[in-house]
Amino acid sequence: MSHPYYPTTLDIPNYVPNQRSTLQLLVTAGVMMTCLMAACITTGTTFSKKTTSVSRFTWFCVSGILHLGFESYWLWHRHTLAGQSDLLAELWKEYAHGDSRYLSADELLLTLEVMTVFVWGPLCILTGWFILRGSNKQYFFQLVASLCHIFSCSLYFLMDLPQAVHCDPSPIYFYIYFIAFNSPWIIVPLMLVYQSYQHIDEAFKTKTKIQ
């Protein structure tokens, strides 16, 4: 059966078009993300006496839940995703306009997603927990988790750039779906790496002075 993805020669067995419109899917995704962020912010605010940063706690919790939930769904359903019509499947099929590798079970992409689900996801949740508790360990785990995000997201981009043959040529799909939806996991981690370095460096300086 023909499909709307690129390259047009890509084989997508048992493909079934989405029943929900693009607008419906984007609005639904927006509402879900808003509710998730609100829940994380509320949790961080509730424990504000110990939480070092509600914004950082929210970032790592949202990232962890997306890795363990949304991306885990793709991992378990990648072979049948194209023929499914449930909400999460249709969200993935909509995103696949920006990267059709998600409908072809690409092996390199699979490797990245396995690391994301089984390592990055739990690491984000653990980092969020340390931030919530105001633990001194938070900056070490924040550094590690942020470097993991920078590594995986950079590799993700490099795997398909500069040709972007798996992306619909429409600027909306390239610049919004492929670039904008993924770039936060490079931009924010870069800032967090710098912050972690400052805190760890300061801790070493303080320890040296004491000694």
Rank of each mutant, 00 (worst) to 15 (best):
T46I: 03
F57C: 04
H97V: 06
E107T: 14
I41M: 02
T42F: 03
A38K: 07
F57L: 12
A105W: 14
W92F: 14
L109H: 12
S53V: 04
W74D: 10
L36D: 01
A89H: 02
G64E: 00
S63F: 01
G83K: 04
A82C: 08
T46P: 02
L81I: 02
I41W: 01
L75A: 13
K50Q: 07
T43C: 06
M37N: 00
G83P: 08
H79M: 13
L88A: 11
G64P: 00
L88R: 05
S100I: 14
L66S: 13
F57W: 05
L108D: 09
R101I: 06
F57A: 03
Q84N: 12
S53N: 10
L110K: 04
K50R: 11
T111F: 05
V62K: 05
T80A: 13
D106T: 13
W74G: 05
C61L: 04
A39D: 02
G83Y: 07
R78M: 15
G98W: 01
W76L: 15
F47A: 07
A89D: 02
L81A: 03
E113T: 04
I65W: 04
E107M: 13
I65D: 09
A82G: 12
C35P: 00
W74S: 06
L68V: 11
G44C: 10
Q84A: 10
K93L: 09
F47M: 05
K93N: 13
L91S: 11
L103A: 13
E71C: 14
Y95T: 11
E94L: 15
H67Q: 07
A89F: 01
A38C: 11
A39H: 00
S85E: 10
W76E: 15
F60S: 03
A39Y: 02
E90A: 12
T43Y: 04
T46C: 04
R78N: 15
L87C: 07
D99H: 05
L110P: 08
F70S: 15
L91Q: 13
T45V: 00
G64I: 01
S85C: 08
I65P: 10
D86G: 02
K93D: 09
E71G: 14
A89G: 09
H67R: 09
S55T: 14
Y73V: 11
T80P: 10
